[in-house]
Design a binder for these strands. Structure first.
Lengths: 316, 316
DNA sequence: CAGCTTCATAGCAAAATGCTATACAAGCGG
DNA sequence: CCGCTTGTATAGCATTTTGCTATGAAGCTG
């Protein structure tokens, strides 16, 4: 007994509107069209849906039950339309963002919160990815956006990279670290403390190698590795260990005053943090909106950093 | 942006089945039909619903969202079909029963419970009505069944009355009542105790008038009136008051041992308790089932009463 | 009971839906 | 890397459904 969904909707409209004519008007149809639909539905069901010969149009119990289903169909249909409209305006839907762990934890997660204060109906699905997986995820349409530091020539065809922050690493330590008392640091000062190694596969890992070479030491004393940003900061705060971190990540934590910048010049990577996405990919207005939000947020952040550096002697 | 509900359902089926051909099969359609539907939906939406050129058919985020709505439409449609089937078999739906208060409280409410142990998907809406309102309610299709005591010629055309129990009233009192010690009761014994009057408008009220006349007294000492069955029984149990009650109602309470029958012959009304319904009315299989259940329950009750009367000296 | 409102029916045009046959494209194995 | 398999899109056609306007029929109301 397969019923016509359109008929169920019309039945619901008629019962809700209190009459065939009104129900038809509610649906933007004419009264005869709806009248016939009701007849066809009744014929298919084989039971009366209305009490005959009653002017204030009275439905039977079965009529009410079918109308209830019709109502849910109507609302489902409306929700579908809303989803489309919301998608096109970028005010509804799902945005899947992949990103390198430290930046996601330090900055992007906050920005997701800010963004959703503006667009509460956009869902964000975050995942932790480094560059190779991110490219694969973008190509496989698993994510719309990637937050990743990337070298100038690393991006292949079909990808678009929007720079949001120049790459700049620093050596981080706890605020009361002994080395902060030194007037002028030398390379061997750094090697005399334990180091935190970033997550394997992360860009910071290769940066650490580079620093190693610039210091001229073949290996550092690495006693902790693999932690997320919160783990690393907690660890740094408790020990005299050092870590290579993006400056912006440390900056974002300045209010907590648990880590600071050790004034020692290290070689900078030729990379920029940015948003990676496919150019030929599907339109995803909500993702574009989110990307725009992230971009302007970082724009503001750059100004704040500049003001901060002009105002206080920080990390130098 | 009005979307075609049928298309949404087909989208859902395709995503659930994992392919156009499988989805089409699931809906009992051919692959080209569904393929075209998807194209039409996509054209209407104006956004891709599938990632092009992927063999394990991958939907876009928007595609998933629309499919979700399609799924709810499918389930609503299925529920509607189930409602029809259940209605025809009498295993689903709503049965609205009106009845005189004391019988509903004493007997029918229990039977509703028994019935729903067999048919858990049938909802019963009970209402308290006396004969005039009941006829109106049946005519206005507010109820399917009426439980009412009725005289032989009271029913008009278009109504069907199924007798379930002959009317038989008794005088009820508490088990320890002083009158129960009397070997042979006389009319003036009865008038020396206070009486409970039934709900105004109920058949029992006219029965009480009849008894009044037979006793030859113009008025009884009525000190309590208007209570439901539970109120009346509670009142009788606490006092030496007397009340006119249907025998079956008192019998149904025999286990509680709070009221009993005073062995005094009173004039019997020319009425029977039965089920009243319209003959020309709509088919309502669930109501028919319920009526059948009530009928057989009373059938059993009659036998129980007979056995009881043969076994014990009860109220005489 | 006359008039008003509302629903049902008739007839027709247009759109949608379904089918079969066939072309096309993405994976996959040799 | 080429052909094969599998699954999807397109074409063409018949049928059904849907919508409309015009008009008849039936309840309610004063």
């Amino acid at each position: 007994m397969k019923l016509n969904e359109r008929h169920l909707m019309q039945l619901a409209a008629v019962l809700d509107a209190g009459g065939v004519s009104e129900g038809a008007a509610m649906l933007g149809l004419t009264q005869p069209a709806v009248s016939r639909s009701l007849n066809m539905l009744e014929a298919r069901v084989g039971e009366p849906l209305f009490v005959k010969g009653r002017r204030p149009l009275q439905a039977t119990q079965l009529g009410f039950q079918l109308a209830a289903q019709g109502r849910t169909i109507i609302t489902a249909s409306r929700k579908a339309s809303d989803a489309v409209q919301g998608f096109m305006k970028g005010t509804k839907g799902v945005v899947r963002v992949g990103g390198v762990p430290f930046f996601m934890d330090a900055m992007i997660s906050r920005m997701i919160g800010e963004f959703q204060n503006l667009e509460p109906e956009v869902t964000v699905q975050q995942s932790y990815l480094n560059l190779p997986e991110m490219v694969a995820a973008l190509e496989g349409n698993q994510i719309e956006l990637g937050i990743v530091p990337i070298g100038v020539l690393d991006l292949g065809p079909g990808f678009e990279f929007t720079e949001i922050l120049p790459g700049r690493n620093i050596v981080a330590c706890r605020p009361g670290h002994p080395l902060l008392r030194n007037r002028r640091l030398r390379a061997h000062d750094l090697t005399s403390f334990p180091w935190v190694a970033p997550l394997p596969g992360s860009p910071l890992m290769s940066d650490l190698q580079m620093i190693l070479m610039s210091i001229g030491m073949s290996d550092l004393n690495i006693r902790y590795s693999g932690g997320s940003l919160m783990s690393v900061i907690n660890y740094l705060a408790e020990t005299d260990a050092l870590a290579v971190l993006p400056f912006s990540v440390v900056f974002a934590q300045r209010k907590e005053n648990r880590v600071t910048v050790l004034p020692y010049e290290i070689p900078q990577p030729n990379r920029s943090l940015g948003i990676l996405r496919r150019v030929g990919g599907l339109r995803a207005p909500a993702a574009e909106r989110f990307a725009a939000h992230v971009t302007t947020s970082f724009e503001n952040l750059r100004h704040i950093i500049k003001r901060h550096e002009n105002a206080v002697v920080w990390g130098r």
